[in-house]
Amino acid sequence: MRTGTLRQILLITDGCSNHGEDPAAMAALAREQGITVNVIGVLDKDAMDESGRREIEAIAAAGGGMSQVVYAKQLSQTVQMVTRQAMTQTLQGLVNRELKQILGSDVSLEDLPPDKRGQVMEVVDELGETVALDVLILIDTSGSMKTKLPTVKEALVDLSLSLNARMGENRFSVFIFPGKRAHAEKMIDWTPRIEELTAVFPKLASGGLTPTGPALREAIAYFDRKRSLRSWISGGDEPYIEESSL
């Protein structure tokens, strides 16, 4: 099995989008291009309104990823868990496909006897440890998210701590939305060290707009741009793990 790069978008938001395309549609678009979209909803004290929760679940479902709604306090633990579990899930999907190719029929992990499952999981665990991972972090900085940004920052540093303990390579990139000029604004370009983040989060634009859909669209485009740039330089396409194309 070739080892490529897993690609994820991690969306951190606290509520409803109110501008531009349907974010779930954009997430579905990402999935078609082999990018998993995970969503974390951050609560203050009081519960999130039902439509916000529904939107978060819809985006993750369409993006083939995971969603979780948490209080700001539990954010660190959740961010790293969601990212890792989404990785395992993608890799499992991949191994399941391989299994089907080898065994020819509709065999998946669940259909194997429990003892055989262990052997398959060993392969998944091994891949999860060694595979390269690109995570584009997309942070909602509109309105009430402002007070939660220090916690978000902490959670992201914690995420890099967890992922950088793996043997595989990691790269992170951070975008915030709404941006000053575009819908999403790049804060950090691809880097293995997210600690640089302490310098960012400048004066944030306030305003009523939450363009989650357009921001997702721009995030996907950024993945593509990076890819084409690199193929210009290296003269070849890097292998990506695209769940949808396997």
């Binding site: 440890e129 914690d158 701590l161 992922l163 950088n164 303990a165 793996r166 043997m167």
Partner: peptide
């Protein structure tokens, strides 16, 4: 040599800023 699979913040040296999560 791998990344610690599961941990609890209070007992995790990464949380306390006292080391990595390498096993």
């Amino acid at each position: 040599g791998r990344a610690v699979k599961e941990f609890t913040e209070l007992y995790d040296r990464g949380y306390w800023g006292l080391g990595s999560r390498k096993a």
